[in-house]
Design a protein around this nucleic acid. Sequence first.
DNA 1: ATCTAATAAAGAAAAAAATCTTTATATATT
DNA 2: AATATATAAAGATTTTTTTCTTTATTAGAT
Lengths: 221, 221
Amino acid sequence: MEAPQNTKRTKASEPTLKRLPRYLHYLQKAQDKGILTISAPVIGKELQCDPTQVVKDLATTGVKGRPRIGYNIHELIQTIESFLGYNRANEAFLVGAGNLGMAMMSYPDFQRFGLKIVAAFDTNRDKIGRSRSGINILHMNKFQDLARRLQVRIAVLTVPHTVAQEVTDLLVASGIEAIWNLTPSQLQVPEHVIVQNTSMYANVTLLLKKLQEKDESESVQ
Amino acid sequence: MEAPQNTKRTKASEPTLKRLPRYLHYLQKAQDKGILTISAPVIGKELQCDPTQVVKDLATTGVKGRPRIGYNIHELIQTIESFLGYNRANEAFLVGAGNLGMAMMSYPDFQRFGLKIVAAFDTNRDKIGRSRSGINILHMNKFQDLARRLQVRIAVLTVPHTVAQEVTDLLVASGIEAIWNLTPSQLQVPEHVIVQNTSMYANVTLLLKKLQEKDESESVQ
DNA sequence: ATCTAATAAAGAAAAAAATCTTTATATATT
DNA sequence: AATATATAAAGATTTTTTTCTTTATTAGAT
Ligand SMILES: NC(=O)c1ccc[n+]([C@@H]2O[C@H](COP(=O)([O-])OP(=O)(O)OC[C@H]3O[C@@H](n4cnc5c(N)ncnc54)[C@H](O)[C@@H]3O)[C@@H](O)[C@H]2O)c1
Ligand SMILES: NC(=O)c1ccc[n+]([C@@H]2O[C@H](COP(=O)([O-])OP(=O)(O)OC[C@H]3O[C@@H](n4cnc5c(N)ncnc54)[C@H](O)[C@@H]3O)[C@@H](O)[C@H]2O)c1
C-alpha cells in the first residue's frame, strides 16, 4: 500500500480519538430517529461539549459539512467509522476467561466497533472446552500456535494481575502486536508492541476525588 | 478563585489523578518485596514514565522526599491513599446486575480503592433475591427508599444503554450525587451530579487506531 | 571535615489541547 | 435578486500539561 490519495496523515490527538466514538454513538441513535442532516452546534448541545471542538474533531476525519445545513448524517457516520477502522473486524484473542473476560465475551457490541473476539484462552481446567456467546475457551498452551496460524495480532488481557506480566511475555513471543490491558499491571513490552490500558481504578479514583472536592468546596463556603 | 489561604486545596490535575493509582499499585508491590525507601527515578524507570513527572505528581499529594534517599515507601503509600480517599470506604449501589455488573460485584479490589458496593439492583425477576460475593440483588423499586435511608451517594451504572437515561433520572431523583457510568450513553444530569464515564469503546478505538497508524507508517517507509 | 554524586524541589520553557475569534459560504427570508 | 443568518472552516489566543533547567540538600566517599 502506498500513495494515499490524500496524504493528509491527520494524526488525530488522543482526546479527539476518545471523543469520536461518543459522537458516533449519538449519531447512530439520531439516524435511527430518521434525522438526515445534523450540525455541530446541535451535537455539542446534546453531548454537552463545545461546538467548535466538535467541528474540529469531525474535521480530522476529513468529512465536509455545509454552512447553514450541517453534515449529512449518513456520510458522517460512514466517514467516522472508516476513519476509526470500525469496518475492519480486527480479530482478537481474549486471555483469562474469568468474571470480566466472560462479560466481555458476552458483549456483542465490540464487533460493531471493529473488534472481534474469535477465541478465549485460560489455564483453568473447569473453563476449558466451554464456550460463551459462540466463543470457545481453549487451553493456554494452544495460544502460540493458533495466534501464528490465524495471524491474530490483538489480545485482550483479563487475567489476574499477579500473572499479567508472564502472560504478556508469552503473548509477545507469540507475535501479538497490540494488547488491551484490563489488569492494573503496568506491562513491560518491546517497543513495537502497543499497549492500551483500561484502568478501572483510575476511573474510580477520579470519581471519588471529584466527590471529595465537591464536599470540600461546599464546606468552605 | 481567590484568597488561597492555608487552604492546601492542591487541586490535582486529571492526568495526575489517573497516574497516582498506578504508582500506588506499583508501590504496594515494591513494599511487599521489603523495600523501605524509593526514589522518583526508580519509579519512573519501572513504570516507563518521566521521573520529573513522578516528582510533580507525588508533590501534589503533599508528601516530602529526601535527596539522595527518596521517599519512605510506607509514608508515601499512606499519603497517596489518604489523598485519594481510599481509606474512606465510600458506599455505592450497583444498578444492572448483568454480565458486567456481576463481574464488578465479584471484584474485591474496588474496596481497596475506596469503593464499597453494598447492594445491587435489577428489574429482572431471575436475578432478584440472588447474591454474588455477599452482595444482594434487590428489585429496582427498592432503590429510592434504600438510597435515602442508607444515605448512599454513589451509583455504579451497568444497565443496557437503551435504558441508561431513564435509570439515571431515577438515580438522581433518589439523591445520588455521583454516577460511575459504564454504559456508552452520554447521561444528562443536573449540574450538581458528578458523572464519571468509563468508555470501553474509547479504549478499543484508541488501540485499533494506534495499530492502524503503525501499519500505515510502516507501509510508507 | 570536605568533596562528590544523586535526587527532591522549584521554576522555566515547550508542547498540546481547548477555547475563542474571525471569515467565508450557503441557505432561507424578504 | 438582495439581505440576513446560521454554521463550517480556518486562524489566534488562552489554558493546561509535559518536559527541560536550575538549585539546593543530603548521604556517602575520600
Ligand atoms: N472483575 C472486575 O470487575 C474487574 C474490574 C477491573 C479490573 N479487573 C481486572 O481484570 C482481571 C481479571 O479479573 P476477574 O475478576 O475476571 O478475575 P478472575 O479470577 O475471575 O479471572 C481471571 C481468569 O484468568 C485465568 N488465568 C489465571 N492464570 C492464567 C494464565 N496464566 N493464563 C491464562 N489464564 C489464566 C483464571 O483461570 C481466570 O479464569 C484482573 O487483573 C482484575 O484486576 C477486573
Ligand atoms: N459486558 C461488557 O463487557 C461490557 C463492556 C462495555 C460496556 N458494557 C456496557 O455495560 C452495560 C451492561 O452490559 P452487560 O453486558 O452487563 O449487559 P446485560 O444485559 O448482561 O446486563 C444488564 C442488566 O441490567 C438489567 N436491567 C435492565 N433494565 C434495567 C432497569 N431499568 N433497571 C435496572 N436494571 C435493569 C438487566 O436485567 C441486566 O441484568 C451496557 O450498557 C453495555 O453497553 C458492557
